[in-house]
Amino acid sequence: MTRRHIGKPPPRTAALLAVLSVLAAAASADTQQSPANGAWQYMRAQLYGTRDISEVGDETMSIEAPGSTPDPSATPVALHFGGDLEGKVKQVRVIIDNNPSPLVTIMDLKPGLPVQEIDLRVRIDRYTSVRAVAETTDGHLEMRSTWVNASGGCSTPPSATEGGTLGQIRFRPSADAKALQISIRHPNNSGFQIDPRTGDPIPPHFVSHIRVSSGGETLMEADTGISLSENPTLRIASHAPLRSPLTVEATDVPTQERYTATWTAGSTK
C-alpha cells in the first residue's frame, strides 16, 4: 500500500493497460449471443493463474447490477461484503467479460477496513457477465457474478450533461456519514467514442488511479480505466461513520495531472 507514482505512469497502471489490450482481443473473439465465459476463462488464467476461486453465498458477498440496464454508459454495480468477509477484504477486482476493456478496476483496501459496500458506475458494451473477485487477508479468492444486457455503452458519445471543471471532485455523504459517494468531473473518454462535431475518434483520456486517504493513511487505492463511466463515481459504505477528514486524489491519463479534494464530515463540497 505504499506504491507512489510521481511524474510517470505507475508500473501497475502500465501493466493494467497491457493486460487490458490483450484481454480486449480475447473478448472481441467471443461473438456468442449469451454471455459466454470464454473471455473469463482467459482472464482468469491471466489474472489468477491456477489459484482456486470459490463462489460464496449472498450473505458473504454479492454483486448487484440491473439485468437490463437503463443506461449502458452508466450502469450501477454494487458490491456487498458481509459475514466472514467484513474487514477481511484486501483487494477487489471488477471484471466485465465482454467489454473491450474488461478489467474495470483493481481496488486495494486497507486491511481491517470495515467496508460493507462498494458502488461503481460502469460502461457496458454488450450482453455480459459482470463479476467481482475479492482477495481476503488470508489469501482466499471469492467471486460473485451477474449478467447485464446492454448495448454500446463504451461508444456512447459524451453525454448531453457534460461540462463543468475537469477534475472537480464532489462528495455526497449519507445522512449518517456511513456512506460517501465520490464523483470526479471527468469525461473518462474510452477511446471508442466519436466526436460529433468532427467525426474523429476521441482519444482515450481517463482517470487511471483513485486514492482515498485519511490522516496520511491510505484507506483505498484503485487502478481504474475506461470501463468506468464519464464522471467516475465510487461509493463506499461502512457500518460505522467514515473517518473525517478524508482526502481523495485522482490521476489523469495521459496528462498525469492530479486532482485532489478533502471531505470533512458535515460538508458536501
Binding site: 448487484e64 452508466a74 450501477p76 458502488d119 455526497r172 460517501l180
Partner: peptide
C-alpha cells in the same frame, strides 16, 4: 435521493 446520499441504484 441525492440529498440523502443515495446511489444511482437506489434512485432507480
Amino acid at each position: 435521493q441525492l440529498a440523502l446520499g443515495k446511489p444511482l441504484q437506489d434512485a432507480l
